[in-house]
Design a protein around this nucleic acid. Structure first.
Length: 889
DNA sequence: TTTGAAACTTAGAAGCGATGAT
DNA sequence: ATCATCGCTTCTAAGTTTCAAA
């Protein structure tokens, strides 16, 4: 099928580009007309495209055609002219690393899209176009048919299309991008004295720190420490340290980079030493008695094929194995491996359905169990051995300082676990070998030796980047990098910069909002669309939304929204429903500014569901514009800004209220604010498997509380009829009915009797121990009888609205009041828990909430930071924890 | 321009170990 | 002490942004 023209023909109108010139007709006039605000909104025109969550229709997508079809793996490689020669591209290293020849599995070389241009022929009056069509009838680029410039000219005279006011570019011309440098041993940054690297003093903002149990950390100060910050602490530390045994002398150097300044600029380090990466152990064939079956018979697989089979076998109980795409991709790739490494007993594996991997699966399960049941001491030993082995890879020397490395373990081979409807999920991910890996390391540093046979692909010394190693992965031909850990100075610095940039937005956001609000009425379509997109990004914290390719899951962000993703509901509500990053559904019904509502209606006019909503906007033009509004401003800064500012505001609102609150109440308030931000950013998680069950438990407890309350009310009535007319004691137990009460009482009765028996036994044991006479059976019997009688009485009471109690009316009133509070609180807790079951708080905490907000809040409310930040977060944000109580985002 | 490589941040799932209930 | 739960850590996929090459 290679690029069949067949496919081309089927739906090939220039799709996307809203054929009938939505907006452009001739960009000029018509655009102007269409943009007039006054027009009416024929509601009937409003498109409604309900589709249910997970599966957006995307037939049109296949028009891809312009790209090499990825499904043609089986066609002879070299043949198609459209196909880049795979040989040329295949990474040598990937081959037979794991014994699986890359060339076997990876039909095509780079999934590089070979694209043709589409010469548009419709709508002649349209802008000169070359709209590239693509996917869902959308083009790799949005199907915009015009180029912004065209608009300008034509689109209503005047209105100088802002489009190009050149943004204040920084003539800085930073150090040349490494791209070229990478070839290999880069030529060393040409003396570039002007390179903005001022890190003179930086060298020594180091302190020696001893770990103390007490949590206080600091101690003696490195002589060269520059600033005087934190002296007090140091002194204290010193004293304490004195008394303390020196043994723990494992003082770590703590580089207080945030006190030094500098750091920006493109040179990231002066010297860099590291030990490379760890490769996973080679494949170990299964014991001879563990064999998968094909058509009921055991198959004798050579190791290479067995390994791939085992990847799948380990997953047969997961959802992945239920997925058709996943299975197909796995099987296709596996067959290629099998072809080169056929079963030794001649089995010809052609049908996936006939494969039975369960013997392998069982084997893995027993192995797992074995490991688990190992004595603790042995487990510990194993772990120690592993840690020792890995130790040297966990850190590196950056400008002479020890820093933690993040992902020093090379990703093991396996089956690609793409999210959502990723067309390649299940495909075989090759074993990575030294030949695949490029190391980035200081010029004078010794070159590490790989822990498996082989030679590094290349060594480079590029100090303008932060990675230590990288390789190209075979599924999507993207790059994988080994970076420093989140707690390292390099990551910390850029993290801090990120938040500072977001804070800077505070000073510009009013103006920016004003501008885009004005532009919502712009007569230039491109501007109006951009303004509308900005409105969404700002208000709803949507992501920028780059275009995606054919061989990726169909997900969108702001700029790549399609008409089908928005539904209008008069008078001014927009319903968003689309799959965003990681194929997480974004569903939101929001009332919007009437002008935005109107705009969306206009943008959708004359377009198909699968056409781009913002056909004149893309992330690049959007960001270009944003940068012109504020230096360094991009779409994602809005997310950071809005998340943090919202969080700060929410916490501030509760400040007074929390003055005398308990610790738990404070934590709740914090988590509540955190949750609202997570919702804003649409951070979801799969509801815990046990959620329903635990909700059920809570509901039961809730009812039990209601039952108690009812009993007390009734007791009150029994004492004095007049309570019945008091609203305070009106029936409030709608969630419990007679049946439930019956069951509940029976269950309590059972429990009470059990309890009595247990107690009886225990008492007797005790008596015997003490050398006394145990109670006889009659004691228990009479207790049981008492319980039975009690429940008989309760049964009689049922429905009478009377109950017995030995409390006085006053006591009852009090107890009811208290119970009422408890019920309310519990109900809240339930609702909260249910509401939060699908909300992930972690992501915003790690990436979006300025940690200084939390640090300051903890100081204000006297909450230990450990209650809110896990150990990793504490080490990730050392620069933030010193913020004082008054610090505000 | 447009495309896509490169580099870095953000993301949820899976794995794992601590902790609390029984 | 054992088991279930839960929260944290690890893993790696999936985004964004920038810039050079075509």
């Amino acid at each position: 099928m290679s690029t069949d023209s067949a496919m081309l023909s089927d739906d090939n109108r220039p799709a996307t580009s809203s054929p009938n010139g939505h907006a452009n007709g001739k960009n000029g006039t018509s655009a102007t007309e269409q943009l007039s605000d006054e027009e009416e909104i024929p509601l009937s025109q409003v498109t409604r495209t309900p589709y249910s969550s997970a599966q957006p229709p995307r037939q049109k997508r296949k028009r891809a055609v312009y790209y090499e079809s990825s499904s043609e793996d089986d066609t002879p490689l070299a043949s198609s002219p459209l196909k880049p020669s795979s040989d040329a591209v295949t990474k040598p290293g990937a081959i037979n690393a794991t014994t699986v020849p890359a060339s076997l599995v990876n039909g095509k070389g780079k999934g590089k899209a070979v694209k043709e241009e589409y010469t548009e022929c419709e709508t002649p009056d349209d802008a000169p176009s070359k709209a590239k069509v693509n996917a869902n009838g959308r083009s790799k680029r949005p199907a915009r048919k015009k180029a912004k410039h065209d608009d300008d000219d034509d689109d209503d005279e005047a209105v100088s299309d802002s489009g190009d006011s050149t943004p204040p570019t920084k003539k800085k011309r930073a150090v040349p991008r490494k791209r070229k440098a990478k070839e290999q041993s880069e030529p060393e940054p040409e003396s570039e004295d002007d390179a903005p690297v001022k890190k003179p003093s930086i060298q020594r903002a180091t302190k020696k720190v001893k770990k103390e149990d007490g949590g206080g950390a600091t101690s003696e100060v490195d002589a060269s420490k520059p600033k005087k910050r934190g002296t007090k602490k140091e002194k204290e530390g010193k004293e304490k340290g004195k008394g303390k045994n020196k043994k723990e002398e494992e003082e770590e150097e703590v580089f207080r980079w945030w006190e030094v300044g500098g750091g920006d600029g493109s040179v990231k380090w002066k010297t860099l030493e590291h030990n490379g990466v760890i490769f996973p152990p080679p494949y170990e064939p299964l014991p001879l008695d563990v064999k998968m079956k094909y058509d009921g018979k055991e198959v004798d697989l050579p190791p290479a094929s067995e390994e791939v089979a085992s990847f799948y076998a380990a997953m047969i109980e997961t959802d992945h194995a239920q997925d058709a795409t996943f299975n197909k991709n796995f099987f296709d790739d596996w067959k290629k491996v099998l072809k080169a490494n056929p079963p030794l007993n001649g089995t010809n594996i052609v049908s996936f359905e006939l494969c039975d991997f369960s013997p392998m699966f069982q084997h893995f399960e027993t192995e797992k169990a074995k490991k688990k049941s190992l004595p603790a001491a042995e487990k510990k030993e194993l772990k120690k051995a592993r840690d020792d082995m890995e130790a040297k890879y966990t850190t590196c020397l950056l400008d002479g300082r020890k820093e933690k490395v993040g992902n020093f373990r090379v990703e093991p081979p396996g089956l690609f676990r793409g999210r959502g409807e990723h067309p390649k999920k299940g495909a075989l991910k090759f074993r990575v070998r030294p030949e695949d890996i490029t190391l980035n390391i200081g010029k004078d540093a010794p070159i590490p030796v790989p822990n498996m046979p082989g030679k590094w692909k290349a060594i480079q010394h590029d100090n303008t980047v932060t990675w230590l190693a990288n390789w190209t992965e075979n599924i999507n031909n993207s790059h994988k990098y080994v970076f420093l850990a989140a707690g390292s100075s390099l990551k910390g610095q850029s993290d801090m910069l990120k938040f500072e940039k977001a804070r800077e937005l505070k000073n510009h956001v009013d103006r920016i909002r004003q501008n885009y609000n004005t532009d919502l009425r712009s007569k230039v379509m491109a501007d109006r669309q951009r303004a509308t997109a900005m409105y969404f990004i700002d208000k709803l914290a949507l992501r920028a939304g780059n275009e995606k390719g054919e061989d990726e899951a169909d997900t969108v962000g702001c700029c790549s929204l399609r008409c089908e993703h928005l539904t209008l509901e008069s008078p001014n509500t927009i319903v968003f429903d689309f799959l965003g990053k990681d194929s997480i559904r974004y569903y939101n019904q929001v009332p919007v500014d009437p002008q935005v509502f109107k705009n969306i209606r206009i943008f959708k006019e004359n377009k198909e569901d699968e056409d781009a909503l913002f056909d004149r906007v893309n992330t690049s033009s959007l960001n270009k514009h944003l940068t012109s509004e504020m230096k360094g401003l991009t779409a994602k800064v809005f997310r950071t800004y809005n998340a943090s500012i919202t969080f700060q505001k929410l916490l501030d609102e509760k400040e007074e209220e929390l003055k005398n609150a308990t610790l738990q109440e404070k934590l709740n308030a914090y988590n509540h604010a955190n949750r609202l931000v997570a919702i804003l950013c649409n951070h979801q998680r799969a509801a815990p498997k046990t959620h329903d069950q635990s909700m059920e438990k809570m509901r039961y407890k809730y009812r039990s509380l209601k039952y108690e309350r009812m009993k007390m009310r009734h007791a009150l009535f029994a004492l004095d009829d007049s309570y019945k007319s008091d609203d305070k004691y009106a029936d409030d137990e709608s969630e419990i009915d007679d049946d439930w009460i019956t069951t509940h009482e029976e269950s309590m009765r059972g429990k009470d009797m059990e309890k009595a028996e247990k107690k009886f036994e225990k008492d007797n044991e005790k008596l015997i121990e003490d050398g006394k006479e145990p109670h006889g059976q009659s004691v228990l019997d009479s207790k049981i009888k008492a319980i039975k009688d009690e429940y008989k009485r309760l049964a009689k009471e049922r429905g009478t609205k009377k109950a017995k109690s030995n409390k006085t009316a006053e006591k009852l009133e009090e107890a009811i009041e208290k119970l009422g509070q408890r019920i309310k609180a519990f109900k809240l807790q339930m609702v909260d828990r249910d509401a939060g079951k699908e909300v992930a708080l972690g992501t915003s905490k790690i990436n979006y909430l300025d940690p200084r907000i939390t640090a300051a809040w903890c100081k204000t409310h006297d909450v230990p930071i450990e209650k809110l930040f896990s150990k990793t977060l504490v080490t990730k944000f050392p620069w933030a924890l010193e913020a004082d109580a008054y610090w505000k985002f």
